[in-house]
């Protein structure tokens, strides 16, 4: 399931972030790629402990933690710290790859299973040409390019790539989520169920039937979630 989450970051946050990123210590992104991905990866990344990276990371985490849409779609258990990267110039693309199933954080020693991937776009599509996030899922391949501050959720299991940027720079923040529900299919069912039920509750208010359906939702979650 590909899902857009609009307005994760505010225009003010985005402006601050872009200021910080302009002078940040960019590095080759090959450092953080797995052996297979390293051949495809050609971008730049920020060290996660620099000021710019920390600002963006914290802003994004704060934002998604309070986004009802994000929470209900990703059903997050743990989030691997967001990172920031850019594409352009001599480092324009990231060819087709899949994400490592498990992310290991050397700082804390914790492991996160990458069930869901998330990309938050930090500048406007008008600032660059190309640079679409191309995701192949069960419904085919789709290119995504969103306004600044918007985010896209897609399954970690998918093959994806960032198309070459032919003009300007593409700035983005990306991170992974270990979900309470491992399967993309089940998450999607739960999400669709939840959204439809929400609309029902909005239209009719709560009654015995919506309570029963809520019970079913929770029972499905009980069945599928690993906590």
């Amino acid at each position: 399931m590909l899902l857009q989450i609009p307005d994760v970051l505010s225009p003010e946050q985005l402006a601050t972030a872009r200021d910080l990123l302009r002078d940040a210590p960019w590095q080759s992104g090959a450092h953080s790629a797995g052996r297979q991905a390293i051949q495809a990866k050609n971008n730049q990344q920020l060290p996660h402990d620099c000021e710019a990276a920390r600002f963006v990371s914290e802003a994004v985490v704060r934002a998604v933690e309070t986004s009802a849409l994000f929470l209900t779609a990703a059903l997050p258990k743990r989030i691997f710290a967001p990172r920031v990267n850019r594409y352009g110039g001599d480092t324009p693309c990231y060819g087709e790859h899949v994400d490592n199933a498990i992310r290991f954080d050397p700082g804390t020693g914790e492991r996160v299973r990458t069930d869901v991937s998330c990309t938050v776009f930090l500048n406007d599509p008008a600032d660059y040409d190309g640079g679409e996030l191309q995701v192949r899922d069960t419904y085919g391949s789709r290119g995504v390019k969103l306004p600044a501050g918007h985010a896209i959720l897609y399954p970690g299991t998918s093959v994806h790539q960032v198309r070459p940027v032919t003009r300007g720079w593409r700035l983005a923040c990306f991170f992974w989520i270990e979900s309470l529900v491992r399967s993309d299919e089940q998450r999607r069912l739960l999400f669709d169920f939840d959204m439809a039920l929400m609309r029902l509750r909005e239209a009719q208010g709560d009654n015995a039937d919506t309570v029963a359906l809520s019970g079913t939702y929770h029972n499905l979650l009980r069945m599928w979630a690993n906590t």
Partner: peptide
């Protein structure tokens, strides 16, 4: 804070983003 256990701030119907995207009723997952 490289790994963030989910410690959501309280969200309610007045939450700006949630309210904007979802209206007054919240999804059960959230």
């Amino acid at each position: 804070r490289h790994i963030h256990p989910i410690v959501p701030a309280a969200i309610g119907t007045t939450d700006r983003k949630a309210a904007r995207s979802q209206g007054a009723v919240l999804p059960l997952g959230a």
